[in-house]
Computed example of a mutant assay.
Amino acid sequence: MKEKWTLSDVVLLAFLAFLFGVVFMGAGFLYSVLSTALTPFGLSPFANEILFGLWTMAAPMTGMLIRKKGSSTLGELLAALAEMLYGSYFGPGVLISGFFQGFGTELGFIVTKYRRYDGVTLIYSAIGTTVVSFIYEFFKFGYGELGLGMIVSLFIVRLLSVLFFGAFVVHLIMKLYERAQKLAVVKS
């Protein structure tokens, strides 16, 4: 892994931030719809947890594509900035959330010492993202006021969402990317 950032790394980072800012805005819209649908049943907190993995995809994708220390944290933070600049109704708070989500993902790469870029690392990253972000949002949203069963349920749903979007979907996208690279080499 090269430590020095290249111009192509910075351009890719900017592109991913722009792209995922749009994804995050879409997730915000879905959140509003889902939260409204779940409110009559007293389950509105689950809207955030069900969609949480969508809001964390920039970090593992950036970490897998830009194999540099800190790229996951920076990728998620810049995608959150893009979301904010696009007019997210969550406002500047998305920057704090983006930092914690990105740092949680970064922990998965740290555990593997930035030597593995595969599904195992994505699983570690999903666990890190879930734990770090849940601790932050436990205090932010006042989850301490909820019963233990509800807290555990929210955590499990968040973990499943992050595993699905941040590990499984990102892994599939990376497989497609690798196939496309191989086809490009064969054709040239």
Rank of each mutant, 00 (worst) to 15 (best):
P45G: 10
Q101I: 15
F52R: 04
G75S: 08
S35T: 03
M61F: 11
M64W: 03
L81F: 15
Y89V: 14
R67W: 13
Y89M: 05
M84G: 03
L38S: 12
G53Q: 00
P60G: 06
A37Y: 02
A37R: 00
T62Q: 11
V94F: 02
G87W: 12
L54R: 03
G75C: 07
S35L: 00
L38R: 05
L95S: 05
A82I: 08
L51E: 01
T36C: 03
M57G: 12
G93M: 02
M64G: 12
P45C: 11
P40A: 14
A80E: 05
S71F: 04
L95K: 11
F41W: 04
L77K: 06
P92D: 00
Q101K: 15
L74Q: 08
F52A: 05
S97G: 13
A82P: 02
L54G: 13
F52H: 05
I96Q: 01
E49S: 08
F52L: 04
T73A: 13
A79T: 02
G53N: 00
G98Q: 14
A47Q: 07
S97K: 11
Y89T: 14
A82H: 06
E83M: 03
L74I: 14
A58W: 01
F52Q: 01
F52S: 08
N48V: 03
G93N: 08
S72H: 11
T62R: 09
V94E: 09
I96N: 01
G75I: 01
A37W: 00
S97Q: 15
L74C: 08
L38H: 06
S72L: 07
L78K: 13
M61D: 06
G75H: 09
G42L: 04
K68R: 15
M57P: 09
A37N: 01
E49K: 12
E76D: 11
